[in-house]
Design a protein around this nucleic acid. Structure first.
Lengths: 329, 329
DNA sequence: GATGAAAATGTAAACGATTTCATTTCACAG
DNA sequence: CTGTGAAATGAAATCGTTTACATTTTCATC
């Protein structure tokens, strides 16, 4: 494999000139440019990013931190990030932490060692202390999930409001006994979503019943099944369930059907995220749509600006309630 | 941020010595080692991969080429690859081609420019010519999908046999009118799966009916719905459908239910891949399980060996039929 | 044809590590 | 105390770029 020296030699110019035609921001005579291009062609030369990266002290790689790749919630966000990154000549390293500190640490090390220029964190279980420390030296953006008040820019939606609207929809179609399937309240978004839930109830003079609130330690299908089992065993059974993730809701769906009950006639279900699969279930799932693709592009743009040393502000994006069969038959 | 020079200076040794304690394969006195480690600690030094990578002419990054991140089929494979890669100090760049040559080209360029040390291709739509050309200079492995006979090592399952067993299962539980929902036969695996389908039929003296074979140009949910619509319109309606992907099968499921028919009483359905969601549907899907995690680890191991210059052989892994509600009630 | 400013090109020093080869240090035998 | 070989360390080249600065070329002008 040829390097820039050999190209220079063959073209009869200096390496500086070759570099100039390569990057194009400096002026080069049409004639020399041609000579260089011929040499490049002839030698099948491809500039090495290794040399360039060292010289420029950058890697042109950004990290995406997600708890697990199995949650389709992240798909669209990732696509958004990827496309924006690609358009700016960045590549993305997708990092699954499994919410384990030791895996997280591996990836943090990647930026410490200059293998990555920045991080978009979507892991709610991320170690906030380390993140804060890292943010002093490196570019970091939080996306979708965020620890509040730690001074790291984020892009997210208004969880409280989204939750409020979802529950309000259930109330409007006649439900009064509404269960909340929430995740661990150590996460900010979980606290916000419970607040929205309670606000909607209070606004309609429905008392908040602690027995109707369930916590799961993960947002997966199985946790949804498990929680739904408990809900179905309540003596005063709820007629509706609001789950804070589609996977939880799909687990609930499966469990309700397995119990011989009908959705939505016996129990209505609302999910959160509008993952692809929410449309594939029987019945299709009513859910809150986050503008995921947009979220991804915005996060990526913010990160790149941060890498370039600019100051960036946090962003709150809109959301939308998508009403489908699981609440309206 | 400190560099190796400053560490050397503070420790009162040469950079060579620092490098030696860093990498640990050369001998260093316990006393100097301590001095160096103190200096590292004091300066908060982290070795830069940029310098190291240039010197070593490697990036320690491998590319994974997938058509789209939305297909859960790839999850477990990716996890397998990632874990194996991580254990060997490689990171993975997940690359979505959308089956578009221009996106593919972006990623191919990454290896030409030394930004990546090798490629694991899972994209059936990959440009085989370019891939072959690339394989002359760079480490490449095909995983799951593969173009046969192009001299690039692959890891896969025996598609023909898997397909044969799936169809045989349908025959054994009494079906004779079995539709095949296949993808485009420009893909080798599609041809193989049709062959398995036909072998099973022939073996039980069931004539192969061309009207029962459907082709989709993608393997998604919508394509499954569309194809199922056509199948349901056949005058001599099949009593079973074998789809070559779970997403197709889930589309079929939804469509059958929407038509007021029952699975499996009216139409039985078999999928392929055993993605997580195949278990979440109503009814749960009978499907062919590929050893995806294993496939990923094997592919990663093969790739790393290839990078190290070893000669690697292709691998065919086993598979398993998972019988669930969509065929047995 | 000399002059000078502007444009094009070249020289050489970074970037931050690893590693070969040379040199120094060390322990020990004579 | 010296000589010896092995072990530890150091000096400097190297990987492949980019770029500040120095130098040369170009060309319009007088």
């Amino acid at each position: 494999m040829a390097n820039i020296q050999q190209v220079a030699k063959r073209a009869g110019v200096s390496v500086a000139t070759v570099s100039r035609v390569l990057n194009g921001h400096d002026k080069v005579t049409a004639k020399t440019k041609l000579k260089v291009e011929e040499a490049i062609q002839y030698l099948n030369y491809e500039p090495s990013m290794l040399g360039r990266n060292l010289r420029n002290s950058e890697s042109r790689i950004v990290l995406i931190l997600i708890p697990t790749i199995s949650n389709p919630f992240y798909f669209e966000i990732i696509k958004g990030i990827e496309n924006m990154a690609l358009s700016q000549n960045y590549s993305i390293l997708l990092c699954e932490t499994d919410s384990k500190p030791e895996k997280e640490e591996i990836y943090f090390d990647l930026v410490r060692k200059k293998m990555a220029d920045g991080i978009i964190s979507m892991d709610p279980a991320v170690n906030v202390e380390t993140l804060k420390e890292l943010a002093e030296h490196y570019a970091i953006i939080q996306c979708s999930e965020y620890g509040g008040g730690i001074g790291i820019p984020y892009v997210t939606i208004d969880s409280e409001e989204a939750s409020y609207r979802a529950v309000k929809h259930l109330i409007q179609i006649g439900h009064k006994k509404i269960a909340l399937m929430n995740s661990d309240e150590k996460f900010l978004y979980a606290r916000e979503r419970r607040m929205g839930y309670e606000r909607a109830l209070r606004e309609h003079d429905i008392p908040v019943n602690g027995d109707y609130i369930f916590y799961t330690h993960e947002l997966g299908f199985e946790q949804g099944q498990l929680a739904m089992k408990k809900i179905l065993r309540l003596e005063d059974r709820p007629t509706a369930v609001f789950a804070v993730s589609d996977l939880l809701a799909i687990g609930a769906l499966k469990e309700i059907t397995a119990a011989g009950l009908h959705v939505p006639n016996d129990v209505a279900v609302v999910g959160f995220d509008k993952i692809d699969f929410s449309n594939m279930t029987n019945p299709a799932l009513t859910t809150v749509a986050q503008p995921m693709y947009k979220m991804g592009t915005v996060a990526a743009r913010m990160l790149i600006e941060k890498i370039q040393g600019k100051i960036v502000d946090s962003v709150v994006l809109g959301h939308e309630l998508v009403i489908r069969e699981s609440t309206t038959g």
